[in-house]
């Protein structure tokens, strides 16, 4: 290579070097930018597609749920629990000293105003994502009367707050609104 460089002396003179180097560096940089830009579609194609995103809100009819009952619905391919609390369950939840909780929240904060009896939470344990028991007819509700996760023994109370076991957080309350007295729109 040594003799090749010496054939063309203009390469070694100051101005030539800089101009030529600049073009080579610019060309390689363009290639780099182009290569990096190609990554964008390759990465974003794995993100949820338009049809998946379109199903991210669900409307559910809650007229048939009597106090004390709960249903499991599906929201974003995950279970969501909709529970009509009895007055006893509400007062049990309100009696708890919030400051003693692992994830301090009152029942009011977890429900809509005037609809405190409607407890709507994701049916996904905040520990490792199992589906807790307690929504179905005859299922174990755990020692706090809410939900019980059989995977690692997390117990939730009647406001679906974590009381015992490894789960770090209360069951998540999704964004929702009441479209009417009998229909709730989740998402």
């Amino acid at each position: 290579m040594a003799d090749e460089a010496s054939i063309d002396t203009s390469v070694t003179t100051g101005e030539g070097v800089r101009r030529r180097d600049f073009i080579n560096i610019a060309a390689v940089s363009f290639a780099g930018v182009g290569g990096a830009a190609v990554i964008l579609p390759l990465v974003s194609q794995m993100a949820p597609s338009a049809d998946v995103l379109a199903e991210s809100s669900t409307e559910i009819d809650i007229s048939a749920i009597t106090p004390g009952q709960a249903i499991k619905a599906v929201f974003r391919k995950q279970p969501v629990f909709i529970r009509n609390l009895t007055p006893a369950e509400i007062s049990a939840a309100e009696k708890v000293d919030v400051s003693s909780l692992r994830d301090p929240q009152t029942l009011e904060e977890r429900t809509k105003e005037g609809k405190t009896n409607w407890l709507i939470t994701m049916g996904v344990c905040t520990h490792l994502g199992c589906v807790p028991l307690g929504a179905g007819e005859g299922e174990v509700k755990g020692e706090f009367g809410g939900y019980f996760c059989p995977c690692h023994g997390s117990s939730y109370d009647t406001a679906a707050r974590i009381r015992k076991g490894p789960a770090p957080k209360n069951l998540e309350v999704p964004t929702y609104e009441f479209s009417s007295d009998t229909v709730v729109k989740i998402g």
Binding site: L40, P41, S44, S49, A50, D51, V52
Partner: peptide
């Protein structure tokens, strides 16, 4: 589905 819904699917 690729052509319409997947992000950049039409291009890929």
């Amino acid at each position: 589905h690729i052509m319409r819904d997947v992000n950049w699917g039409w291009m890929l």
